[in-house]
Structure formats: C-alpha cells, structure tokens
Design a protein around this nucleic acid. Structure first.
Lengths: 215, 215
DNA sequence: GGATTACGATACAGTACGTTCCGTAATCAA
DNA sequence: TTGATTACGGAACGTACTGTATCGTAATCC
C-alpha cells in the first residue's frame, strides 16, 4: 500500500535529503542512521498531518509521536517543509488501469482513487496541503509535481481513448480529466463531504454523455 | 461589491454575535460600539486570512492591522473562529443570472464567479478554510452553509433548464452543478493554478455536450 | 580499542499568544 | 452640567511552545 510509484520520482526533487546523504558518503565511519527511526518519523509526520494539518504540525510533535529526539529529525531534514513534502510523496500513487474501454478505465481508476482517499491519510492531508499552498509559495512549488502526478493517470486514460477513437480529436484531454475529477474535488473541498465509491458511476456517465439532452 | 446576499442568512447562524448584542439591548446607556471599528476588524480579518491563512491568523494580528485594541475584538467575538466565519460570510455572493438558455446562464455566472475569486480575497481565503475543515469540525460546521450557498446558483440554473426541457428529467442537478464547478475546483486546489475567465467556455461546452464522441 | 557518528533526552533563550488592566472618550439620564 | 455607564486603544503579564545547542550513551568502522 505504501510508497507509490511517484515516490521515487519525487526523491529526485528532494534537494534536502540529498545533502546529508552525500555528506554521509564522505565518511562511512560512525554509527549508521537508523532506518527504523527514519520510517517512524515519516509515519508520525503523516499521522500528525492528518490530525492537525500542516501549520499546526511541529517538529517537536513529530519527534514525540515517533519516539525520537528532535535532533534526529533536524539531522535529516532542515525544516518541517521538506519533511512534509517527503512524507506526502510517500503516500500511495495510482497505477494505470487498462480495462479496454474509456468508461471502464475511468470507473475503475476513480474507485481506486476514492478508496485511497478514504483508507489512507490522503483524504485529510491533501486538502490541508492544498489550502496551505495559497500562503506558502515554497510548499506550493515542492508539492506541485506530486499533485500533478495524481492527475496524470486520467490524462493517459483519455490519450488511450483518443487512439481508440472513443473521443473527438479536438477534446482537451486535460480538461476532460478535470471534468471527471471535478465532482470529487468539489465534494472534498467545497462541501467537506464523504467520498463514497457509489458516486463514481453517475459522475462518469454524466461526464461522458453530457448534461444537455441529446436530440 | 461587499456584503452579498447570504450575508444576512449567515447572521442568523451566528450565535456568538447575538449574545453581546442582546446584552447591549438590556442597557442602552454608555458609549456605543464603534461601527467603524467593527468594519475595520472584519476587513483586517479578511486581508490577513488571505495573506497568512486561518491557522496563522491571530487576534493580535487582526487588532494591529485594524488599528484597534485586542479587547475591542474580544468584546464582540469570543474567539477567532466566529470572527473568521462572519468575515467570510460577508464576502460577495452571487445573484442569479437568467440569460435565457442553459449555456448562457452557466457561462455568465461562471465568469462572474471567477472574477470574484480573482478580484476579492475569496480566491485565497476559500482554499485556506477548505483545507482547515478536515481538522477543525467546529469551523467546518459553521462554514458549511456559507460554502453551500456558493454552489446554490448553479443548482437553480439547472432547475430552470429542466423546466425549459433543455436537460433530461433523470439528471442529478447537484451532480450537474458539481460537474461544471469541478474543473474550477481542480484548478484551484489540485493545481494551485490561476483562474482565467477564458477557461469558462470550454468547460461549459464540454460539460454540456459530453466527452464521448457523438454518433 | 580508539575514533567517529547517531541516538534520545534535556536545558535554554526567544517569540508570540490570549488575557487582563489602565486612563481616556463618548453617550445617556437626571 | 454632572454622574453613571460602557467602549475605546494601549500596554503589561504569565504561559506555552518553538528551534537550537549540549549532554551522556550506543553502534559502527579501522
């Protein structure tokens, strides 16, 4: 479940973790860093992010929850920002689903989407970080590729559908993805509502066929 | 521009302001509360909400920005929560637009929508509050009617369209509203992007006609 | 076994919060 | 006009919590 596909992709963008890692390579002596502590810190970060949100999250709180000293955290991450970004990037990603038709692809992928939002910290962490972006450009920049990656599977689904001839050539694939994801986003942000897998089929049906009456 | 339609509707739900107001009615003597200070406080709250977000907002900061003492604020609101709710509720609402056709109604209303998001604090305040809802049930409950009111005009547009026979009887009007609002929400939250009025026409066209190729 | 680095725990200084009190200003009643 | 009452902006107070530095201990390499 943990550590989705884009986790590695994100690692490349983590200038912060790279630095201490490189420094360690210079001197291979001394006590090695505990991998358990590393994982415990990331887990605690996600849990607290879900509970109290980004701005109320403190390094001290993470240390307490993870059962480590604060210094252990600051030795690896310069501040809570890169720590949060890495923890968020480690949340599960989404694999491509190719069920043969546009409709089935969308429905299956969306259901996996909602399940992930409901069963992991994603459902609470994502809105919190999204809300923070408006006031924190640095966080916004670091989160951007991770957020974009979560929309990518849908763009690919529509690319395949176009190749199959299921949609017209002039349809904006990005807009199509936004149209399908939209009601989820509205439910999550505008209404703070529950994401039920039952909402998937009506969304896809309506988005594909359109709202207007067909003549 | 300021003080939209739902401002009054919200006032009813403000248990907090009601209390001191009632207490004042008991004794009509003494120096009256400054209406200027009241407005300055609300303005400052909105400005700071847009700049730093909900959790970083402090009553002290509001007092400084508004040029009033902290006591003046605490005399009217018991905490920053009802203060924020009232300030948010005072943001502009949306009037119904009846341009004669579903397509025109949607396009004109959406363009007003985006304009409001871009020219007022709504664009930054709304995501911040939405993100906070997950961790603050009290805020969530108080914001809910205000957030719902912002979707209402679209539901009414679809109701009129159904009466005109422009859409089928079995279309879920709420879902239709979410479908049209969706790409805006995705742009705002998932991508932290800019809301350009030019995105409106493609959204409406695609939502009305559907993504699938028509045969 | 000595050098080196990481570990958890704690102590420290600094910041900023919400609350409370102050003297002053504005309104009403007598 | 005077006294009572309430609101005003400003400032002081105690508290809570932050990031950093430092402690003795533990684990690894040469």
């Amino acid at each position: 479940m943990r550590a989705g596909k884009e986790a590695e992709a994100v690692a490349a963008a983590e200038s912060d973790r790279a630095k201490p890692t490189r420094r360690r390579m210079t001197s291979s002596t001394g006590r090695p860093r505990s991998e358990e502590a590393h994982q415990a810190i990331l887990d605690a970060t996600l849990a607290l992010l879900a509970e109290v949100g980004f701005s109320a999250l403190t390094v001290e709180g993470v240390a307490q929850r993870a059962g480590v000293g604060k210094a252990t955290i600051y030795r690896r991450w310069s501040s809570k920002l890169p720590l949060v970004v890495e923890a968020f990037g480690a949340l599960p990603g989404f694999e491509d689903v190719d069920a043969g038709s546009l409709e089935q692809d969308l429905k299956e992928t969306l259901k996996k989407y909602l399940e992930a939002f409901n069963t992991t910290a994603l459902g609470t962490v994502f809105p919190s970080l999204a809300g923070e972006r408006a006031h924190n450009p640095e966080l916004s920049k670091m989160i951007e590729p991770v957020a974009r990656a979560r929309r990518e599977p849908f763009v690919r689904i529509f690319e395949r559908a176009r190749q199959r001839g299921e949609i017209a050539d002039d349809v904006d694939l990005g807009l199509a993805a936004d149209l399908v994801l939209g009601p989820i986003s509205v439910t999550l942000f505008f209404r703070g509502g529950v994401l039920s897998p039952r909402m998937v089929d009506p969304i896809v049906d309506l988005a594909l066929s359109g709202i207007s009456k067909r003549n």
